[in-house]
C-alpha cells in the first residue's frame, strides 16, 4: 500500500537531510506507529506521502501511484485515497459537525444524495450520532477529533495518516480515539500514525517504525515506544 525506496529529502535551509535513504513498506490493512523525537523526520515522512513535498531522491508509491512522478493535475486523485487527521483537528468553526464532514465530499464533487446518505453513517461510526447539527466549539476535544476522523474517513480512503492525533487530549480520551482508529483499521484501511505517546504505543503493540535524524533506526512488527521499556 505504501512503499518508500531509499527516500531522501533535503530542505534548502538545512545541511542535514530531513529523511536519509529511508526504505519502508507498509502493507494493506496494517497499523503502523511512526515514532521518534522532534525533528526526526516524522512530519516530512507524512508530507511526502501526501505529495505536500517532493523527495530529493528515491521513490514513493502510495496506493499504486508513483507519488513523485504524479502530474500535478492528478495529485487530487492521490489525496482522495488518503485521509488525514491532525493534532489541532482543523475543523471549520463556522460549519456544523455534519457540515464539516459533508465539506470533504462537497469539494470533490460528490452528489448531494450520496452526502446525505454517507455523512450520518460515518458520524454513527465515530460515535457522534445525533450531534450533526452541533457546532465544533460546543464539543469536547475528543469529540472534535472524532469529527476530524469522520471527515478523514468519510470518503473511505485506503490510507489514514494521523499526525499526533492524541497530542491535545487527556489519556482516557486518547484511548477512545485509539479504539476508533483501530475500528477504522479493521475495515481494511491502512493507518500510519505519528506519535510521541508512549502509553498508547506500548498498549497497542502494533508495528513501530522509529526515525532518528532522518533515518529508520528501528522497525518492529509488534513494538513498543522505547527499546529499554520493551525489555523491562
Amino acid at each position: 500500500m505504501i512503499r518508500l525506496e531509499r527516500v531522501t529529502k533535503m530542505y534548502k535551509t538545512s545541511t542535514r537531510p530531513a529523511l536519509d535513504r529511508v526504505s519502508v513498506s507498509v502493507e494493506k490493512g496494517e497499523f503502523v506507529f511512526l515514532i521518534g523525537p522532534s525533528g526526526s523526520g516524522k512530519s516530512t515522512f507524512l508530507r511526502l506521502l501526501l505529495r505536500e513535498d517532493l523527495p530529493t531522491r528515491g521513490k514513493i508509491t502510495v496506493a499504486d501511484l508513483d507519488v513523485a512522478k504524479l502530474p500535478r493535475r492528478r495529485v487530487p486523485r492521490l489525496r482522495q485515497r488518503i485521509g488525514c487527521v491532525f493534532q489541532d483537528f482543523r475543523l471549520l468553526p463556522n460549519k456544523t459537525v455534519g457540515g464539516n464532514v459533508a465539506f470533504a465530499l462537497e469539494v470533490i464533487g460528490k452528489p448531494q444524495s450520496t452526502i446525505g446518505r454517507v455523512v450520518p453513517e460515518v458520524l454513527e461510526l465515530v460515535g457522534l450520532e445525533g450531534k450533526a447539527d452541533r457546532m465544533p466549539h460546543e464539543l469536547s476535544g475528543g469529540e472534535q477529533q472524532r469529527v476530524a476522523i469522520a471527515r478523514a474517513f468519510v470518503n473511505r480512503p485506503l490510507v489514514l495518516l494521523a499526525d499526533e492525533p492524541t497530542g491535545n487530549l487527556d489519556p482516557d480520551t486518547s484511548q477512545d480515539i485509539m479504539l476508533l482508529l483501530e475500528r477504522i483499521n479493521r475495515t481494511g484501511t491502512t493507518v500510519v500514525m505519528a506519535t510521541h505517546d508512549h502509553s498508547i504505543v506500548d498498549s497497542m503493540r502494533r508495528r513501530v517504525v522509529e526515525l532518528d535524524l532522518g533515518q529508520v533506526v528501528r522497525d518492529e512488527s509488534r513494538g513498543v515506544y522505547g527499546v529499554g521499556r520493551a525489555q523491562a
Binding site: 489525496r79 482543523r90 469539494v107
Partner: peptide, 11 residues
C-alpha cells in the same frame, strides 16, 4: 482541508 481531501485546483 480542500487540498487534503483531494479537491482539484479548479475547485
Amino acid at each position: 482541508v480542500m487540498r487534503l481531501v483531494g479537491a482539484t485546483r479548479w475547485y
